[in-house]
Design a protein around this nucleic acid. Structure first.
Lengths: 154, 154
DNA sequence: TAATTTGTTCAATCGCAATTAAACAAAACA
DNA sequence: TGTTTTGTTTAATTGCGATTGAACAAATTA
């Protein structure tokens, strides 16, 4: 019973992983797989354990796992002599959220820069506003870079 | 001709706004409207100018504009005596990108925290990894807060 | 009042990513 | 060798948000 309640909590959490990763552009299933590999007490799961626990088709699991492995989020463990593949969370990038943030900043900065370029009046209200935002972004980016170094060496 | 080339550049840029905002969970049309209001040399556009320039239906424009206004991204200007509504970009939040980032951090932190809670072995490899990430996020958040203040008062 | 402009509402449709199912391939075993 | 396990491939389906279209409402003008 207690065992069961814990499994339910895990399942709910796995769905939250799915929602979160869905919101940042992943397939829900990709998020749920990452969730399962994160939540599960056993940290290496077979293909079969993944499909049966998440109730997803083998096709989905195959395609999504290949992507996750290619992106370096998940690692494959092939036990010598066995034909089964095991999957585990790849603990590679402590700064993933930061990287995502910097990419967003770069996108926004690029858009605003091009926008100002096209403006007939570079002193227009919006143009000035965009200059301010670019300025702010630049300040944050330099500071983030130094902070990242500090955390890395600490 | 030159006039025309510039319009085309604007249109391409507007589509890039659409793609970017699409990637962060907006309807493409919402992004394109924000793009138009950002790019256009005339900074206040009527409902009709928006639908005809972007080639979108009145229905879409109506729904999306209502959302954008509710979210505070776009402001309505109702000229006294006229029946027409004008829309302009709302220059309210210089830290929008930052806010988005902090929300992402909070989501991730919450997921990881709950995940550790459910772990049978809090010393497992993944659990330790999650502790590290939470730690890193916390450091960044405090530093970001002080940086934000510095930029705001500067 | 009737006619026009301006915008809203919502049922229907479109388009596309996510997912499945089932046939297929490859490796291990008996 | 045939059989079983394990995973892949891809055509078809499903599901759902985005978008349209057309009827409708409200305000304005004549």
């Amino acid at each position: 019973m207690l065992e069961n309640a814990n499994l339910q909590k895990q399942n709910r959490l796995i769905d939250e992983y799915g929602s979160y990763f869905g919101s940042i552009g992943f397939q829900p299933i990709a998020g749920r797989i990452i969730g399962l590999l994160s939540v599960s007490d056993c940290e290496e799961l077979s293909f079969d354990e993944i499909t049966s626990r998440l109730q997803i088709s083998k096709g989905s699991a195959s395609v999504v796992l290949r992507r996750l492995v290619a992106e370096g989020r998940v690692a494959v463990v092939t036990v010598e002599g066995g034909r089964r593949h095991y999957y585990r969370l790849n603990q590679q990038n402590l700064f993933e959220v930061l990287d995502e943030f910097e990419r967003m900043c770069d996108s926004v900065r690029g858009l605003l820069n091009t926008t100002i370029d096209l403006k007939a009046d570079k002193q227009s209200s919006n143009a000035k506003y965009f200059y301010q935002i670019i300025n702010t972004i630049d300040k944050y980016k330099t500071k983030l870079a130094s902070m990242r170094q500090a955390v890395q060496t600490a």
